[in-house]
Nucleic acid binder design. Sequence first.
RNA 1: GCGGGUGUGGUGAAAUUGGUAGACACGCUAGACUUAGGAUCUAGUGCUUCACGGCGUGGGGGUUCGAGUCCCUCCACCCGCACCA
Length: 923
Amino acid sequence: MEYNFREIESDWRKYWAENKTFRAEDNSDKPKYYVLDMFPYPSGAGLHVGHPLGYIASDIYARYKRHKGFNVLHPMGYDSFGLPAEQYAIQTGQHPAVTTEENVTRYRQQLDQIGFSFDWDREVRTSNPEYYKWTQWIFKQLFDCWYNNDSDKAERISVLEERFAQEGNETVNAVHDCEITFSASEWKEFSEKEQRAILMNYRLTYLADSWVNWCPALGTVLANDEVINGLSERGGHPVEQKLMRQWSMRIKAYAERLLTGLEGIDWSDSIKEQQRNWIGKSVGCSVKFQVSDADSAIEVFTTRPDTIFGVSFLVLAPEHPLVDSLTTDEYKEEVEAYKKAASLKTERDRQSDVKNITGQFTGGYAKHPFTGEKVAIWIGDYVLASYGTGAVMAVPCGDQRDWDFANHFGIPIKNIFSDIDISQAAYTEKEGVIADSDFLSGLDVKAAMAKAIEEIEKQGIGKGKTNYRLRDAVFSRQRFWGEPFPVYYKDDVPYMVEDNQLPVELPKVDAYLPTEDGEPPLARAKREDWNVFEGERMEFNTMPGWAGSSWYFLRYMDPKNDGEFVAKEKADYWQNVDLYIGGSEHATGHLLYARFWTKFLYDMGYISFDEPFKKLINQGMILGRSSFVYRDKETGKFVSVSKKDDFDTIALHVDINLVDNDRLDIEAFKKSRPDYANAEFILEEDGTYVCGHEVEKMSKSKFNVQTPDELVEKFGADTLRMYEMFLGPLEQAKPWDTKGINGVHNFLRKLWRLFHNGQGELEVVDQQPQPEALKTLHKTIKKVTEDLERYSFNTPVSAFMIAVNELTDQKCNNKAVLGDLLVLLAPFGPHIAEELWKKLGYTTSIAYAQWPEFKEEFLVENSFDYPVSFNGKMRFKIALPTDMGKEDVEKTVLASEQAQKYLEGNQPKKVIVVPGRIVNIVM
RNA sequence: GCGGGUGUGGUGAAAUUGGUAGACACGCUAGACUUAGGAUCUAGUGCUUCACGGCGUGGGGGUUCGAGUCCCUCCACCCGCACCA
C-alpha cells in the first residue's frame, strides 16, 4: 500500500475530533503546561503559508509536552473585532458579525486541515457578548481603582475616597492628573459631581480631554503604538493631534513595574529592548526657575543637574501655558507667529524637520536659582509639551541640541567642564570634572549630580524625579465593531452600568458610519436598540482592538464561566502562559497592554501571577517570492528574463501558480486573462519562458500568495508541517519557496516504505533490536529532545531524515525501534505517526505515548575510531564513556597500540584531551 | 546618533562547553530502472589544481596545540527607537 496521505490525514483528524484527544483537563495530577499562539484576526483573505508557521511550532511543542507527561493547555480563538470587517460593512451594509462569522468558518477549515492539536472546546471570540461581557467587567474594575505609590499597587477607589474624607489629597501618594489640592473638609464640601470629577484624575481608566492622534481618514483616534512615523499603522493615513474627550488607560502607573518585570521573563532581547525604549525611563530632577518680573516659576526636568551652572537660557514648548504671560509686548507678534507655525506642523513634519533649528525669544527672563543671573526664556518646537514639564534648561556646553540652538541664535556658551574643548561641539559624555560651578567645582559628574540634587532639594526649588516616556493609552475608538463601554451619562457625568446588567451589547444601527454631527456610529442607535440603556445616553465610543486581546489568555482557562472572567482555582492551576508564539509587531502594543492588565488583575487578587507570558518566541515573517514577466513596451511581446535587457520592458507580476521553478506555464498564462490569449513570447534557447523573481511581502496584489490549502492537497499536512519547520530557524524572516518541499515529502514516503515490504505489506519484526539500529535511534532521541528543549524546530527534521536513511540502509524493521521513532516524529507529522503506530498494533492514540528515554550506553563503544597524523600531532577520535576522567582517557590513549607506534618510545610534549571526543598528542 | 540582530557553497541551512566546517535538503552532473510517480536506485557536487597539494565561515588583527564559535577593530545588510531634555 502506498503512502496515501489524503485518506490517512482526514481519517485521523476525524478520530481526534470525535475522541477529543486534545482536551485539556482542569484538574490533573500531571504538571501543567500552557502553550499559546497569538490568536488571529479572521480576515477575508484567509490564511497564507506564513500564518501557520508559528502555530505549527507551538503545536509541535504542545504535542511534545504531552508525550513528556504534561497536562497541556493549547487553545485557539479569534480576535474578531476589527477594522476590515467594519470597512466592509460600511461599503456593503452587511453586519460585521456576519462577515466575521464567514471568515471564522473559513479560518477554521484551513486550520483544521493542518492537524493542530487545539482544544477547540475552549475557543474564544472577542466579539462574542459572552466574552466581551468580561472585557467590560475588567474595564469597570480599572475604573474603580487608583494607583497607590506607597503600596506600589492598584487599590479600590473607595479607599481613596475615605482618605480624602480624612486627610484631603495632599498626603496621598498616587499616580494622578489632579491639579488642585484640597483638605478633608473641602472634600466634604464638594458636590457629588465635583467629587467624581476629581476622582476621575485618579482612576486607572479615565475620561478626560487629551491630545490624541486623530486619523481623519479612518475617522477615529489611535493609540501611540498604532501610529508609525506620523501615519496610521493600518492604511498609512496621516494622523493629526487633536484635543478630544476620550477614555484613557493610566498605564503610566505601571511604568516602573512593566520595566522591572522584563528581567524575570524569557523574551528576546530585541522585544525587551523595544519595551524599555517605549517606557523610556530617565532619572534626573526637577528645578524651578523664578521668572524675573512675575510671581510665576518655570519648572524644568533635567537628567543633568550637575550642569546647572552651565545654563544660559531656558526653552519652553510653544504650547507651554506660561508662554503668553512671559512674552513682552516687544516680542508678542513674533511669538504668536512662531506658535501658529508650530501648531500647523504635523507630528510627521516636526520629525522630518529635525535639522532645521527654529526658536523665538520671548523677551522674558528667569533668575538662575544659584547665581541669580538673568536667564533668557525662549520657545522652540524641539521641546515637546508632552514630555517632562514641557520646558528645559539649556546647557549648550553639555547638550548638542542646546549647543546648536545657542550657536544658531548667537547665545553665549559657558563651559563648565575642565580641560574640554567645546568650540566645535557639545561635550555629552557623562564623565569628567565639573569646573566653574560654585559648590560643584572639582567634583566628577557622578558626585556633582548627587550634590546638585541634594542642594536643589535643600533650597526647596526642586527634587529628584524619574520621568517616563510612556504615555497613557487612549482607549476610545469612534468605531462600530468593537466592545461597547459599560458606561452611561447622567448630567454629562459618566457612570458604570451595574455588573448584573452586563454585557452592554452592540446595538442595532442603520449604518456603520459616523453620524452627520460627527458622532460615532453607535450614536445612530435608538433608545430601544440598546439592551441596556441608563441615564440620558449611553457611551458612543467603542473599545480599541487591544482590549479583548489583553486578557484572552485567561479566558481559555475557563471559557464558559458565566459568573467570573476566570475562576480563581482554574487560574491558580494553569498560571501564566509557559510558551507564547507570535509576531514581533506587537512589541509595544498587545504585549505591553497584556502585561499591564495582568499586573492590575494580580494587584486585585484575581490571579496569582503578574506576568502573562513566561517565554516568548517571535516567529519570523514568511515573505512571498513574486514572479515577473517582462513585456516589451513597443511590441507587447513577453520577453524571457535573460533577454529582457535587450528590450525596453516593463515588469509585471505574474501569478505564482502559473510558474514552476521560474518556468512559466505558457498555456495557462494565455488562459489566465482574455487579453493574454494571443500573447507572443521571446523565449530562452531551450524554448521555455523564464520569469524573474523578487522577495516581497505576501499579498494578493502581488500574486505571490501561497495558501496552505493547495500544498495540503498536493503533499499532505504532515509534509507541509515539516517543510515549514525545515525552511530554517523559526525566528528568522524568510522567503517562501516551495522548491524543497519534495525533499520532505520524499522523506515521508521513505519512512512509509521502512515499515512495508516491496509488496506494500506491513513488515515489522518484534525481537531484540540490532545494536546499530539502537545507535541510530538513541542518537535521534538525544538530538530531537535537546533541540526541542531549546526551541529549535528545524534541526529535528534533518535528524529524522538521517535516521530514516540509516535505518533504511540497515534494513531495520524492528518494531521497538520503529515505534520509538514514531513517537519522536509524532509532534511533527502527527497523521502519519498515528497511522503507522496503529499498524504496529497499538490501539490508543500515539498522542500520549511516552517520549522515549535517551540511553547513552547505546552510543558508546570502547574503541578508538581512528588515529590520524595531523601537522606533527597525533589525533585520535575516540568514543569513551563520558564518566571516564581526563587522566584515565589520557592513560588509555597513550597505552594504546596506535599511540605507541606513533610515539616510538618518545615522551609526548603535550596531550590534549577532550573527554568523549578527541585526543591530540603533540610531539 | 542610540539600541538589538545577522553575515558560512549555486540555494535553504547544520555545527554541545572552542575540537575532522558545509550535516540534512534543494538544485545541478553522469548513469541505472520503471508498473511515468512531483517516483526509485548508484556515483559526483565549497573553491583551486591533471595530480600531490593549497585556500576557504564579511575584511584585518589577537588569544589557543586547535577559532564559524572567544577578544579587539573595521565593513555590509536587516530591525527597533530617535529633538525624550
